[in-house]
C-alpha cells in the first residue's frame, strides 16, 4: 500500500522559462507505508516545487498526488490532516507565539495531542510567550517538528528540514523519524541536497535533476550498483574510461564510479571502496554535465 503516490506531475514556470527554463517534467514515484524516501537533487533541481505541489501550495499543470489513496480534490480536509509538513524556513506567522500555534493546532486537528506537544516544547526549550520571529532558526525548526509530531499523520513531508540543527538535535530527530515509521503504517518523504544525515535511514532514493527523474530505487540496491574507484591518471586507459561514470580528475589522480557487474572487478592497482549516496550523485551529475 502506498501512502504517497505522485503521478505524472508537471509544472512549468513562465517567468523563469525565459531565463533558462525551469520546469518539473512528468515526475512519478510512490512511497509505500512504513518506508523513508529521500528526495535528492541540487538546489533548484525541482525538489521544493515537487513538495509544494504535494502540499497544494503550488498548482501543478498536470498530474496527480494521492495521500493514502485520496486526492486533494476528493477530500481536502482529510488530505491535509494526513500530512505533516516541515519546511526549510519557518512557515508560522511571524507575530504569532507558540501559544497561538498550539491553540490553532487544537482547533483544526482533532488528533492534536496537547500534552505531547507541551512535552516536546519543554524538551526542546521552546518559550511560549515570545513571538516566533524572535526564535532562532533551530528553534523554528523544532517548533515545526513539535507541531507535526504531536498529532496523527500518515506521512511526513520534510523539505531540507534538518538544516540549522545542531548535531545533537539532528541525531535525536533521526531517531524520532525512525520511531515514526516503525509501526509500518507511516512514511516519510524528505528532500535534501545533502544526504549525509539520512544516508543510513533512507529506504528509497529519488534523484531529480533539472526537473526530471534520474532514478528512483532502493538505496541498498543503488549502493551495490557502484564502487567508487580512485587511481593515478596513468591508470585511465581508454578502455577503463569507457566503463567509468563521472570521472573527476585532479592533478594527481582521479575518482569515478565503477558499475559493478556480475563477476567483474575493477582492474588491480585501483583503490576501490563503497561509495556513499552523495558520492554516487556527485559523480552522476559530473557525467551528465559532460554528456550535455
Amino acid at each position: 500500500m502506498d501512502l504517497l503516490s505522485v503521478e505524472h506531475l508537471s509544472k512549468q514556470y513562465k517567468k523563469t522559462q525565459k531565463q533558462g527554463g525551469f520546469s518539473l517534467q512528468n515526475i512519478s514515484f510512490s512511497v509505500p507505508a512504513g518506508y523513508i524516501c529521500g528526495y535528492v537533487g541540487r538546489n533548484g533541481a525541482g525538489k521544493t516545487t515537487t513538495l509544494n505541489a504535494i502540499m497544494h501550495l503550488v498548482r501543478p499543470d498536470s498530474g496527480e498526488v494521492l495521500i493514502d489513496g485520496v486526492s486533494f480534490e476528493e477530500d481536502p480536509v482529510s488530505y491535509r490532516r494526513q500530512i505533516g509538513y516541515v519546511g526549510d524556513a519557518s512557515y508560522f506567522p511571524k507575530d504569532f507565539t507558540l501559544r497561538d500555534i498550539r491553540e490553532i493546532l487544537a482547533d483544526f486537528y482533532p488528533s492534536f495531542d496537547m500534552k505531547n506537544f507541551d512535552r516536546l516544547a519543554a524538551r526542546w526549550e521552546l518559550p511560549a510567550k515570545p513571538k516566533i520571529k524572535t526564535y532562532s532558526r533551530g528553534m523554528k525548526v523544532k517548533l515545526m517538528f513539535a507541531s507535526v509530531l504531536a498529532r496523527d499523520t500518515k506521512i511526513l513531508i520534510l523539505d531540507e528540514a534538518t538544516n540549522g540543527l545542531d548535531p545533537m538535535m539532528r541525531n535525536e530527530l533521526l531517531a524520532m523519524l525512525q520511531e515514526y515509521v516503525e509501526d509500518g503504517n507511516h512514511s516519510i518523504l524528505f528532500s535534501t541536497h545533502n544526504m549525509e544525515d539520512l544516508q543510513d535511514i533512507a529506504d528509497y532514493i529519488f534523484f531529480i535533476e533539472e526537473g526530471r527523474k534520474v532514478f528512483f530505487q532502493a538505496k541498498d540496491e543503488l549502493l551495490e550498483e557502484y564502487l567508487l574507484v580512485r587511481g593515478g591518471l596513468s591508470d585511465l586507459t581508454p578502455e577503463l574510461t569507457g566503463r567509468l561514470t563521472g570521472i573527476q580528475k585532479n592533478e594527481f589522480g582521479f575518482s569515478a564510479l565503477y558499475p559493478v557487474a556480475e563477476n567483474c572487478v575493477p582492474p588491480a592497482g585501483l583503490l576501490s571502496e563503497k561509495p556513499t549516496v552523495d558520492e554516487i550523485i556527485v559523480h552522476m551529475l559530473r557525467q551528465m554535465r559532460e554528456t550535455v
Partner: peptide
Amino acid sequence: AAENAEEAGFLEMLPVKP
C-alpha cells in the same frame, strides 16, 4: 494582507475546504 506575507504557509496548509 498578512496572508500575502511570505511566512504564512502554516495557515495556508490548515485542513479546511478551499
